[in-house]
Amino acid sequence: MWRIFRFMGYKVQVKVFDEGSQFGISEFPRISKMCVHKGNKWLLNYDRGWDFNDLSPTAYKLLLKFLEWAL
């Protein structure tokens, strides 16, 4: 199921499943796809593998904490 969130000025879209998968993000295996952008700039894209992650390590960790709570 696709979920869309606003977090710290970012727009976050994730495709999340009930159970983890080998194609999921290692820190959050239930997420198989995720994209993050702010304005017109894409900062993160994961589609069953990393395309790019230009978020700062701190912002990425905060995002994962938020997703743990939200999902």
Results as ranks from 00 to 15, higher is better:
61 K>E: 05
62 L>W: 01
66 F>P: 00
60 Y>P: 01
22 Q>L: 12
54 D>G: 00
42 W>A: 13
51 D>P: 02
66 F>H: 05
30 R>Y: 06
18 D>I: 04
7 F>H: 14
7 F>Y: 12
15 K>M: 07
3 R>C: 12
37 H>M: 08
16 V>Y: 11
24 G>R: 02
45 N>F: 12
53 N>Y: 02
68 E>G: 03
36 V>R: 02
47 D>A: 05
19 E>P: 04
12 V>I: 14
51 D>K: 15
25 I>W: 02
24 G>H: 01
4 I>N: 13
10 Y>N: 03
28 F>M: 12
28 F>E: 03
1 M>R: 15
5 F>G: 05
28 F>S: 01
66 F>I: 05
54 D>F: 13
70 A>E: 15
50 W>G: 03
6 R>A: 13
5 F>C: 09
50 W>C: 05
8 M>I: 13
57 P>L: 04
29 P>A: 03
7 F>Q: 07
2 W>G: 04
49 G>V: 00
5 F>M: 09
33 K>T: 06
26 S>P: 01
60 Y>V: 05
18 D>W: 03
65 K>Y: 06
20 G>Y: 06
4 I>T: 11
51 D>R: 15
11 K>F: 07
37 H>C: 05
3 R>P: 06
67 L>H: 00
52 F>Q: 00
3 R>S: 11
14 V>G: 03
11 K>Q: 10
59 A>C: 14
56 S>L: 04
18 D>F: 04
